[in-house]
Design a protein around this nucleic acid. Structure first.
Length: 652
DNA sequence: CTCTATGAAGTTTTT
DNA sequence: CTTCATAGAG
């Protein structure tokens, strides 16, 4: 461990001392070696990390020897900006990003050691599912009657992903994810193997592989690990409660040379277990690390903090939050009749607040699942209240953008079967069979060390001169924006007109996409940003200018954010807590979600419920679980809240 | 083989 | 509102 830099402990610079309270200062100055900082909601966690980095720099640590792993790319960027402001210096060289960004950067260099090429494609969840489907179908052809009952791709994917992220055996994973499928253990194992083979063939990794392969690389090549790890004198991990086993292994490896691993998080806010995250990482890490607790809450009023303390999830590390703010009002519970009346109540609250002079961007509506906001969205539209959606379909998940991306991906990685078939099928008379055969031609010629053009020409495309020329010319473009422009002008604009009813707005999206792409120097950087962190949502992408808007988001999407007024809707057993979670007895995660939701509020918190549960428009049967223990609102002691009824005016 | 029409079924959260 | 499977026409 590095001991060389802390002679200055008693001489902490003013610019740090003046900005932090005693708990924060303790964590900033004394965290070293293996340290765990448990920072409650609103406790200035970002501030602590910012000043930790500033303090390290003050003590002569070069920022390029610091690694900061955050949950989102945006968080990393924000942190860098803040450090720049505080230290008045350029820290461009610090490595900061999500696990996926950090691992991706490493793999782009060492993919060869794992049997991949460095220009590998990153498969998003949908593409990965397509690859698994290929594997499953190949297998299906060989097993006769059994094929009828073979589990669906997404179930198999869930099991595989679980196994990879938890480092558990396939058998154990099946038993934990979907125990009734244990009789298919051998089938799933075979399909998994096939899936892995195809990914290598087409030079592609899924999201889990990015992490798993990095861990494997470190396990196999101690020299490479030594080389990378010796660079990072300090490794800082934010949102530690949402890390999984593999991620813990990776940061432990990365900090193995200097031994400085500082984890920051709040186990009560662990809400990503479906992705393999384990809040237990916090408890286990606590056993052999120095612990710092930060329990002062600067964000919320005492009334809100009282409620929060009452609702601390079970199994959390003990904590009691202290508010330092002045009183305003108790949280308000509003019981409405149904979805529609709830939306009316929300609109009424928002209007009231806007009349009081609050800016729209100080107000947020939170919910458990996207569909719970549908009725509200219509109401807000009709009342002309501007809002932005943080949840919902991402820009790059829309069909037209995925189409365009497939052309970019084949230029980057000509082995990418998924993108080739997607791109080819956009031309008339080319369906899935032809597309696969063309791909196989290309694949063979690439493997025979011939160039791509020969592969194209020897393929079936020679019958279709236009399409052939289109692809030959495509590969002469280099930058992302050139490629998009080429595809759009020479094919997609026309295709879009013939295919989509809303081609106008889709084409506008693509034009915007060209502008975004123009900001990236290389195709690789652009694709990396798109697949790993591009976070533009469909609705906001079509807005002309940035205006102040009310935020609508899932609780997951609200992580790390705060608003003066927070309105949490549809807290009905079955909606929130989620019905599936209740059935599968995963209520503790729902408790943590509730905790995250109510701790987003600075001044005012409204919690809405309905007498009748929300009807999921996509679901035949919606269940309402009225059992008392599943109703979060019934758990709240009366003294902490004010209760209102809207009077069911529409119905009585 | 492609393309379209039809009906059925599946639904949480996302780097 | 999707995606998936199937049938039938070209």
């Amino acid at each position: 461990m590095d001991e060389d830099i802390f002679e200055l402990e008693t001489n902490i610079p003013e610019f740090i001392k003046n900005e932090l309270d005693s708990e924060q200062l303790e964590a900033v100055v004394n965290s070293r070696g293996r340290s765990l900082i448990i920072a409650g909601p609103g406790s200035g966690k970002t501030r602590v990390i910012t000043y930790k980095i500033a303090y390290l720099m003050y003590n002569g640590i070069n920022p390029k020897n610091i690694l900061l792993v955050t949950f989102t790319r945006a968080a990393a960027k924000e942190m860098i900006e803040r450090v720049k402001n505080v230290t008045n210096s350029d820290i461009e060289e610090m490595t900061a990003g999500t696990f996926h960004h950090v691992c991706n950067a490493i793999l782009r260099r060492y993919a060869g050691k794992l049997g991949y090429k460095n220009n590998f494609t990153i498969l998003d969840s949908e593409d990965a599912k397509d690859v698994l489907k290929i594997a499953r179908n190949e297998y299906k052809e060989n097993i006769g009657d059994r094929a009828q009952k073979l589990p669906k791709e997404n179930v198999i994917m869930k099991i595989i992903s679980y196994s990879k992220n938890t480092l558990k055996s396939l058998r154990e994973s099946i038993l934990e994810v979907s125990s009734n499928l244990i009789e298919y253990e051998n089938d799933i194992e075979y399909i998994w193997q096939k899936y892995a083979e195809i990914k290598k063939d087409i030079n592609a990794m899924d999201y889990d592989d990015i992490l798993v392969n990095t861990a494997v690389l470190f396990r196999m090549n101690k020299e490479i690990l030594q080389f990378i790890s010796s660079k990072y004198r300090y490794v800082l991990v934010d949102e530690f409660q949402d890390t999984n086993k593999i991620q813990l292994e990776i940061v432990e490896a990365l900090s193995s040379v200097h031994g400085n691993l500082i984890a920051v998080g709040d186990d009560s806010q662990s809400i990503y277990s479906f992705r393999g995250a384990r809040f237990e990482n916090v408890k286990e890490f606590m056993e052999n690390s120095t612990l710092f607790k930060i329990q002062t809450n600067y964000r919320s009023t005492p009334e809100i903090v009282n409620l929060v303390n009452e609702m601390i999830p079970l199994n959390s590390v003990h904590k009691t939050l202290k508010s330092v703010r002045n009183s305003i009002d108790k949280p308000i519970i509003i019981e409405t009749f149904d979805d529609l009346e709830q939306s009316e109540a929300v609109v009424k609250i928002i209007k009231e607040k806007l009349d009081e002079g609050l800016e729209p961007n100080e107000i947020a509506v939170l919910y458990r699942s996207h569909f719970l906001s549908m009725t509200l969205q219509q109401k807000l539209d009709s009342k002309k209240i501007p809002y932005r959606l943080l949840s919902g379909k991402r820009f790059i998940e829309t069909a037209h953008i995925k189409d365009i991306l497939s052309f970019l991906k084949i230029v980057q990685n000509p082995y990418d079967k998924i993108s080739w078939t997607r791109a080819l099928k956009l031309f008339p008379k080319i369906g899935s069979k032809t597309a696969v055969r063309v791909y196989e031609n290309i694949f063979d010629s690439l493997n025979d060390n011939k160039n791509l053009e020969i592969g194209l020409e020897t393929s079936l495309l020679k019958k279709n001169k236009n399409v052939l020329n289109f692809f030959v010319e495509l590969f002469k473009n280099n930058t992302a924006s050139d490629i998009i422009e080429y595809v759009f002008k020479n094919h997609y604009k026309e295709y879009s007109k013939l295919t989509f009813k809303d081609s106008r707005s889709r084409n506008m999206d693509i034009e915007r996409f060209i502008e975004i792409a123009d900001k990236y120097e290389t195709l690789e950087k652009f694709l990396e940003e798109m697949t790993l962190s591009e976070n533009i949502k469909v609705s906001s992408s079509r807005k002309e200018k940035e205006e102040k808007e009310v935020t609508l988001t899932t609780i997951h999407g609200s992580k790390g954010l705060e608003w003066k007024v927070v309105i949490l809707i549809s807290v009905n057993p079955g909606d929130f807590p989620n019905g599936m979670a209740i059935r599968e007895k995963r209520i503790d995660e729902e408790e943590r979600l509730f905790y995250v939701a109510i701790t987003r509020a600075k001044n005012e918190l409204y919690i809405l419920k309905q007498v009748t549960g929300t009807v999921n428009p996509y679901m035949r049967n919606s269940f309402v679980f009225m059992k008392k223990e599943n109703d979060f609102i019934k758990r709240i002691p009366n003294q902490y809240i004010k209760k209102l009824k809207t009077g069911y005016k529409r119905y009585f």
